[in-house]
Write a protein that binds this DNA or RNA. Structure first.
Length: 948
RNA sequence: GGGCGGAUAGCUCAGUUGGGAGAGCACAGCCCUUACAAGGCUGGGGUCACAGGUUCAAGCCCUGUUCCGCCUACCA
């Protein structure tokens, strides 16, 4: 046995303990083959990431579950890994090489990707190393990266399958475009923020007449791309104008006034300018018209105005252009008024640049049918979502789901497995449609030309489609050839002049395959067979749609089985004021700093206590401090036990096997706590589980049991032979309760529990290999009633001390008048415990005890405690004390009165409740009377002393 | 616009089928009682946001209101 040092120093043990666990493969699946395997895949953090509170909470909860299940003998696999995080990582490396004054284009695609890989090799391990500091019990031999060879194979396999099923297709339409990242984004990758803008009212003169029509817009610069003005067909104000032309200010174009029933007559002037190339609504209007309205793209893919904006504006940044357009309109007296206007603006979730809707050609996944199945899987309970408030969000998102844009115009990621033949024109050579020209770059980057298939959604002015910038692209006008392997020659014409699609897939595409791709799919591996579907997914709600919903759809589509049984959605960690933590606000709390300051165990335990279902977490450092105190308490409790293990009383004790009364009590409490904790964990009530153990260890084990055991452990020195205690039973109970407490705590605080456990004479190589305590069958309340008498007696005396300011070091005499045989017997049987805990030098017990003159009194339900304090007692304050007690009881009786004199209550409430209330009433009335008697006696005494 | 969550002690928050309002921190008093002052004992402190309703009984269920927070949406 190793002597525990005086203080627990987390940093001295964390690293070595963790290495010990790894060396011994404790985190690899083992356990009972007959029990259901348990598996979790980690939500892969971005490889560029740095550990934040969200990660810390997320993995702590997973680790608690994993360790708990391992200790309950399940075969547990927890798969770790990281996500390649396409745009984010590319941005990081681009910034990196910018320091060397180069950009990715001058480097070239292959060299750039090499640089990213190099970066990944150097820094990609940072986040996983940080996770290790939390003590996570992942099976690191299973670590995966979304761009791994195996996972890339899975991605290609899925893409090809979906393509061949027609679920993946190409389309040209408006897409959310980030002018800074130069790529398309999915709807989800756009973050909307409310902003104060202004609504500009602009006059468009009617051609050939004196009149004009006024339109209102938040984006005056898009006027340059207007191709119509729309009004509601039933709007009488404008009925006569439909079909007329207006001349578009600042241009030499005229555009028609058209009717569209979606136009809201109430908003603005009821007339809306239509810019099909730069607004999703307008695109829809344009496509509802027959023939379609023209698409004129005046903003380029870098947010700079194109040639089509006209020579006065081409080359201007979009916001510069807005200023100039406004100035020019003002000069031409075209502006009627400006109004302040609140509206929401889309921003890129990676770089926060304002999104520009642009017409481009992109790859999409058809979602509707997959969503239907994914909804079904949840509705039928094949997947549970917790807390259940999230069901509605899930359903409503799935119901309104739109096709998912999966192509990104960046380089870092899974390149789309599609090739185009420059020679053949598609299967029938003609029907693939006419060639169209695409300008591939923003004007100032020089023009590149290329062609794409006409995609038959018609109407778009493809001459002005701005495609992925700075990308050289040659004629591509053929049906895509989609294969898993590199295509070297065209399967249709045999030609070898093939061009691979330059785009990569949305990062979330590979993430959506994570639960099965990490287990080896498309190979049919043992791991896959054993651990798919996974048991639970632990995640934050902000990626419910990004990731969780898509995993469900892909799991069902590809594996024909849900990816996980349970989804547990935890809160987001906010700062102490409830603000979202962000670098710009400067309110970020770094988990690693918390770990440095307080140790991993205290930090983890705090997170567990914070993890209340359905509620945001306001982080507070003070709480960690509080739980560090708890760790200290636990540590010292263990030191106490160690101290007494070799005490003379223990080693010399014969140990007749009989348990001391407190031993029975604490063991019974332990059983009950073990049941509570297991139930809480099974329900993902991490806070309840943590609090139960906390309460037990501190307030039952330490506050009462250990204090009581000091008496048991003493060599019998009382004059009363009957009270001889069994020190052996006490120390054995201490060891046992400590053992099981540590086991209960181990999933929450793995390090200190291991450290203490290994220093005790327990058998085994690690606490993590021991069984988790769960004792439902022995949950009888043995010893709990006896203990109540002891607690009543002790706390009665303590209360007198506290209230009357009597120093704890002053030894007191006391007597207890008992009112039942059981009370008499129990108090007498436990006299030594009571005397020690209450610091008494003598204690009289009996039903005939009389109170002596100046005594303080404590009235309990089956006893009255007298502490004679001649000379010490301030009669006035004693009366005050008793009156305070009396008034509390009187209040309670009043409430009970109201109930028990209410016939409706007596008639309708369950008998159990009535009996309980009656019992309480009796008890309190008796108590009240006794206190009153004592007050009367004290008053008499008071008067006596006054008259003397 | 639609949806969701919150409002309980000075602070941060628990409160699982409706049946005597809790914890931690902070505060006050007495104590270095030999595991622990990162501690022990004792105590003070709450019209459970507001207004109705259901019920014998409401912090908990229903309706409405106010104030916060979040998600979502194409009102230019």
């Amino acid at each position: 046995m190793k002597q525990l040092p005086k203080f627990f120093e987390p940093h001295k043990v964390e690293k070595t303990r963790y290495e010990y666990w790894l060396e011994n493969d404790f985190f690899k699946p083992s356990g009972d083959n007959n029990k259901e395997p348990y598996s979790i895949v980690i939500p892969p953090p971005n490889v560029t990431g740095s550990l934040h509170m969200g990660h810390a909470l997320n993995v702590t909860l997973q680790d608690i579950l994993s360790r708990w299940k391992r200790m309950t003998n399940h075969k547990v696999l927890w798969v770790p890994g990281t996500d390649h995080a396409g745009i984010a990582t590319q941005n990081v490396v681009e910034k990196d090489i910018a320091k060397e004054k180069i950009d990715r284009h001058s480097l070239g695609r292959d060299k750039f990707i090499q640089r990213v890989w190099k970066w990944k090799e150097e820094y990609g391990g940072r986040i996983t190393n940080q996770l290790r500091r939390l003590g996570v019990s992942c099976d690191w031999t299973m670590e995966r990266f979304t761009l791994d060879e195996g996972l890339s194979l899975a991605v290609k396999e899925v893409f090809v399958r979906l393509f061949k099923e027609g679920l993946i297709y190409r389309s040209s339409r408006l897409i959310n475009w980030c002018p800074r990242c130069h790529t398309a984004l999915s709807d989800l990758e756009v973050e909307h923020e409310e902003a104060e803008g202004s609504l500009t009212y602009i006059k468009y003169p009617v051609v050939g007449e004196d009149g004009h029509i006024v339109v209102a817009t938040t984006r005056p610069e898009t006027l340059l791309g207007d191709t119509a003005v729309a009004v509601n067909p039933v709007d009488e104000r404008y009925a006569a104008m439909i079909g007329k032309e207006v001349s578009l200010p600042l241009t030499d174009r005229t555009i028609p006034i058209i009717a569209d029933s979606e136009v809201d007559s109430e908003f603005g002037t009821g007339a809306v300018k239509v810019t099909p190339s730069h607004d999703f609504n307008d695109e829809a209007i344009a496509k509802r018209q027959s023939p379609h309205l023209a698409f004129i793209t005046v903003i380029g893919d870098d947010g700079v105005m194109t040639d089509r904006a006209g020579e006065n504006y081409a080359g201007l940044d979009r916001y510069e252009c807005r200023k100039k357009v406004l100035a020019d309109l003002r000069e031409g007296e075209s502006i009627v008024k400006l109004e302040a206007h609140q509206h929401s603006l889309g921003h890129c979730y990676r770089c926060n640049t304002i999104i520009e809707p642009l017409p481009t050609i992109q790859w999409y996944v058809r979602m509707k049918d997959m969503a239907v199945e994914a909804v079904e899987a949840v509705k039928t309970g094949r997947i549970r979502i917790m807390p259940d408030a999230w069901y509605n969000s899930y359903y409503s998102w799935m119901k309104n789901i739109k096709d998912w844009c999966i192509s990104r115009q960046i380089w870092w990621g899974h390149r789309i497995p599609v090739w185009y033949c420059t020679h053949c024109k598609g299967e029938d050579g003609v029907s693939q449609g006419a060639k169209i020209h695409i300008k591939l770059s923003a004007p100032h980057n020089g023009l590149q030309e290329g062609t794409y298939n006409e995609l038959r959604d018609g109407g778009i002015d493809h001459d002005n489609i701005v495609n992925n910038s700075k990308q050289t692209r040659v004629d591509i006008d053929t049906t895509p050839i989609c294969e898993k392997v590199d295509v070297k020659e065209c399967p249709r014409c045999g030609g070898s002049d093939l061009i691979r699609d330059p785009d990569v897939l949305d990062t979330w595409f590979s993430s959506s395959l994570w639960p099965f791709s990490t287990l080896g799919w498309p190979e049919s591996t043992e791991k896959l067979k054993t651990f798919y579907p996974t048991s639970v997914l632990i995640t934050a709600f902000d990626i419910l749609f990004f990731w969780v919903a898509r995993m469900i759809m892909m799991g069902l589509k590809v594996m024909n089985e849900v990816p996980f049984r349970d989804v547990y959605i935890h809160a987001i960690v906010r700062d102490s004021k409830g603000q979202k933590m962000s670098k710009s606000k400067g309110n970020v709390v770094d988990p690693l700093i918390m770990i440095d300051k307080y140790g991993t165990d205290a930090f983890r335990f705090t997170l567990a206590v914070f993890a209340v279902q359905g509620r945001d977490i306001r982080f507070s450092e003070e709480r960690i401090e509080g739980y560090r105190h708890f760790i200290n308490k636990l540590w010292n409790a263990a030191r106490f036990i160690q101290m007494f293990m070799e005490a003379e009383a223990v080693t010399n004790s014969t140990g007749n096997g009989a348990l001391n009364p407190p031993d029975k009590w604490i063991l019974s409490r332990l059983n009950s706590v073990s049941v509570d904790v297991n139930a809480a964990l099974a329900d993902y009530r991490f806070n309840d589980a943590a609090n139960s153990i906390y309460q037990f260890v501190w307030h039952e084990l330490c506050d009462w049991y250990i204090e009581l055991s000091k008496t048991s452990l003493k060599r019998d020195e009382t004059d009363d032979k009957q009270l001889s205690r069994n020190p052996k039973a006490a120390i054995e109970t201490l060891l046992k309760v400590l053992d099981y407490s540590l086991r209960l705590l181990h999933p929450f605080m793995p390090f200190i529990t291991e450290e203490i456990w290994c220093a005790m004479p327990y058998e085994g190589d690690s606490i993590s290999r021991k069984e988790y305590p769960y004792f439902p069958e022995s949950e009888q309340k043995e010893g709990e009633k006896d203990m109540q008498y002891i607690i009543d007696a002790v706390s009665g005396i303590r209360n007198i001390r506290g209230e009357l300011n009597i120093s704890p070091s002053k030894v007191l005499k006391a007597s207890i008048k008992t009112f039942s045989l059981e009370a008499t017997r129990t108090i007498a049987d436990n006299k030594d415990y009571i005397m020690n805990l209450a610091r008494l030098e003598s204690l009289e017990i009996g039903e005939t005890i009389k109170k002596t003159g100046a005594s303080a009194t404590s009235v309990k339900s089956e006893m009255e405690i007298y502490v004679p304090l001649s000379g010490l007692l301030n009669v006035g304050s004693e009366i005050e004390r008793l009156e305070k007690e009396l008034s509390k009881i009187a209040d309670s009786i009043k409430i009970l009165d109201r109930k028990l004199f209410n016939e409706d209550f007596l008639n309708r409430a369950p008998k159990k409740v009535i009996d309980k209330e009656k019992f309480k009433y009796e008890e309190l009335t008796v108590k009240k009377e006794r206190i009153m008697n004592n007050i009367i006696k004290m008053r008499e005494l008071d008067e006596e002393s006054r008259s003397n």
